[in-house]
Design a binder for these strands. Sequence first.
DNA 1: ATGGCGCGCGCAGCGCGA
Length: 256
Amino acid sequence: MKIATWNVNSLRVRLPHLLAWLDTEKPDIVALQETKTVDEDFPLGEIHAAGYQTVFSGQKSYNGVALLSRLTPTGVTRDIANLDDAQRRLLAANYDGLRVINLYVPNGASVGSEKYAYKMSWLEKISAWIQQQLSTHEHLIVLGDFNIAPEDRDVHDPAAWQGQVLVSDAERAAFTRLRNLGLHDCFRLFEQPADVFSWWDYRAGAFRRNQGLRIDHILVSPALRALCTSCRIDTTPRKLERPSDHAPVVAEFTVK
DNA sequence: ATGGCGCGCGCAGCGCGA
């Protein structure tokens, strides 16, 4: 089973890239973030024609998450108790015995800002819910755009980014707390080349210079960790005309 | 060099992303 996460930065604009990528990679489940599409405008026809079922939680202009799958989703969650968030950043579904949680973690703007406080509060509330989900789902996968580069090796220039949003100590501590619940970063289960990133700024030729951050992640429960056989970041779609600024992260599992 | 680019909205130029 192949599972991926991709922040597409507008589903309607990126639909040709997504459809081409689905055709090439043939993933079983794909978590999308920043669809920026209200549910009425979700491109159901094209995605169904590609062989995927869908669940989504969108809003006008901003945010928005979706799950595409070969299997039929059940147990769909769009809101959780105590989060009370109008921003569409969370979507979970079951596929047979697998529980998939798709997250679009807030960006945080800058350390100390109101948006940063919202990000930290959001992470705290989500973590409590994920802890609960871990206790009821043996095969749990939490993936998405976390907007956190966990370690300095996930940053092209750690000195320049020191203390900034996406790499600050408090954000990294929140990510560590999530992992300490019993979640494993699939990417780091395997030997990886240096300087592999999942996001590059559109400006200043950042992708060409590989000046990126690894902020998109696939985390798994212990039972799934044992079944994970690979994890990589696919930079192919980032090279296309008018790309998303994020690249997909792809993990494979020896399950059904 | 606090800009650079790309998106949505909506028709100018701003808010937002990371």
